[in-house]
């Protein structure tokens, strides 16, 4: 037993706070928008130049001039504003976005993140990922705990080219939740186990060192 994709998104949604400006990455992070807790209102930023992103349009509302960073058709809200890419990344790089939730291939216990490149394979590019991890106030990673061949994705040291150094604050995997003191010296801490997951299992599947901080 472990968390499903939707349960992962639901757990990540608990990191949202009322009034937050949030950027969601592609994949599981996008699903987080479906689980915004009651009483919490957030404003979603899309790095292609939009603040206040609405849901997918009805068929008869589709507008080719209105897409998100995943190139999906979306809608606007009453509070929406549009701006250029340089204004968009001024928001991101200038530290005006409260929270970014993104996917990862590898994370280390110091908060280094790799999510853009596998040497030898066709590289699609980093898009806005390096800007987001460098500039957003709090960075939450949502990922599978292990790769398809069972290798831990939480490592002592990233093996892939990194997206940023000391950038991740929280890692949510299908097996549990880890807090990282990215600018400090505290060790990575396991703070929650996914439903039906034991401490033995998560320890066996984690290469990185961590302390048990389960409440």
């Amino acid at each position: 037993m472990a968390w499903s994709r939707d349960q992962l998104a639901q757990r990540a949604a608990k990191e949202l706070r009322d009034g937050f400006y949030v950027n969601l990455g592609i994949g599981i992070p996008t699903l987080v928008a479906n689980y915004i807790p009651d009483g919490v209102e957030v404003t979603l930023q899309s790095e292609n130049g939009m603040l206040g992103m609405g849901p997918f349009p009805y068929e008869d509302e589709i507008d080719a001039d209105l897409i998100n960073a995943g190139k999906q058709t979306i809608t606007a809200l009453k509070k929406t504003s549009y701006f250029s890419s340089s204004d968009s990344f001024a928001m991101i790089r200038g530290g005006h976005i409260d929270l970014s939730i993104l996917g990862a291939m590898e994370v280390n216990d110091g908060g280094d993140l790799a999510n853009w490149m596998v040497p030898g394979k066709m590289v699609k590019g980093m898009g806005g990922a390096m800007d987001l991890v460098a500039g957003v106030k709090r960075v939450v990673v949502v990922m599978e705990h292990t790769s398809k061949d069972g290798a831990s994705k939480l490592l002592k040291k990233c093996t892939l080219p990194v997206t940023g150094i000391n950038v991740v604050d929280l890692v949510i995997t299908d097996l549990g939740v880890f807090e990282i003191d990215k600018h400090g010296s505290k060790p990575m801490a396991l703070t929650q186990l996914a439903d039906g997951v034991t401490l033995e299992e998560i320890t066996a599947k984690t290469e990185a060192s961590f302390v048990n901080a389960l409440g």
Partner: peptide, 19 residues
Amino acid sequence: QYLSGELELEFNPQGTLAE
């Protein structure tokens, strides 16, 4: 074209490219 070496490619982070 990229993998066959016909095309050069320079990746810039999106915000860096915009700036």
